[in-house]
């Protein structure tokens, strides 16, 4: 004889007898929910690789985000080794005032004016690729950057220079990876093209490779460093590589960046091909960047 047992009801009875703890059922429901949502298979974009749109002097992969307007004040004092007479550099100052705006979450444009050589600059920045987590996500973020800088300083003696000869362009690919919530590293292959150079031996095209890193010390305080290596050539022979070390301090809608650097200028055309300061000899400019974000329109 074939004996078929009603397994279903038996199992239920057994479960009841064993006192199916509600906690287990609860866990099952949570597991079922995880299974249904497939959250473990989800792709997420990495956010806040750097605190600001600048690492220190140079650009980071970050953009302001759609509808956000950033007002940036960048300031460098004179060199620390200029002596007590100059109050160790605090008597002198160069400044750049800038505005940048996020047209979309990926695309940003900006303008600025540096006191150094009375220079106007404008740039576009596009977040091409974004690092993420989950299956198929990219390991790095890539942002493209292009800028034009126009020096408006009067040249004495005459002849006056043409507008074309006053222009310098910079092209950068910014590649960054946020290794953990604390550590981010960025590589910046860079080309600075100068329409006009004084001497035949000077380079119109200056190539450089930048390296930057951010290490968080606390949730709102981070240590930053940035170094631009000039590829061998006439510029590398007569100028120095730009080095900057600093802190990012975040408070509500502001990011304060305090740093020391051997570069005086705050845009690529100055700090990449024209850095003369020797960091180890005390040609160190103390400076800060302050940014304030204003939301001009809601996000779509």
């Amino acid at each position: 004889m074939n004996l078929t047992l009603p397994w279903g009801p038996l199992a239920l009875g057994a479960a009841l007898l064993l006192g199916a703890a509600p906690a287990h059922a609860q866990q099952d429901l949570m597991q079922q929910l995880d299974h249904l949502t497939g959250d473990s298979l989800r792709r997420e974009l990495t956010v806040a690789t750097f605190k600001g749109t600048r690492v220190i002097n140079g650009q980071s992969i970050e953009t302001p985000g759609a509808g956000s307007l950033l007002f940036l004040i960048s300031h460098r004092f004179g060199t620390l080794n200029s002596g007590a007479y100059n109050f160790f550099g605090l008597d002198q100052a160069t400044i750049r005032l800038g505005l940048e705006y996020g047209l979309t979450d990926r695309l940003a444009v900006g303008v600025g004016r540096s006191s150094l050589e009375k220079t106007f600059d404008g740039f576009g920045k596009y977040r091409l690729l974004r690092q993420g987590s989950g299956p198929g996500a990219l390991p790095v973020s890539v942002t493209l950057f292009a800028s034009a800088a126009l020096s408006s300083v009067r040249f004495e003696p005459q002849p006056e220079r043409t507008t074309t000869s006053r222009l310098t362009y910079t092209y950068q690919a910014l590649l960054a990876r946020k290794f953990s919530s604390a550590l981010s590293v960025q590589l910046m292959p860079t080309l600075v093209h100068r329409n006009y150079v004084d001497l035949r031996r000077d380079q119109n095209n200056v190539w450089a490779l930048g390296l930057a890193a951010r290490q968080k010390l606390t949730k709102r305080l981070a240590l930053t460093g940035e170094y631009y290596y000039l590829l061998p050539g006439a510029t590398a022979d007569s100028f120095r590589n730009s080095l900057a070390l600093g802190f990012d301090i975040e408070t509500g809608g502001h990011v304060f960046q305090l740093h020391v650097t051997n570069s005086q200028g705050m845009i690529e055309k100055f700090f990449i091909p024209q850095t003369t300061g020797n960091f180890l000899n005390g040609d160190i400019f103390f400076g800060f960047n302050v940014s304030r974000a204003f939301q001009l329109r809601g996000r779509p």
């Binding site: 956010v47 806040a48 985000g65 509808g67 996020g102 979450d105 949730k219 974000a293 939301q295 996000r299």
Partner: peptide, 12 residues
């Protein structure tokens, strides 16, 4: 509504 706020919410 503000991207910066969202970053702060997630980060800090």
């Amino acid at each position: 509504p503000k991207p910066l706020m969202q970053d702060h919410f997630n980060e800090n």
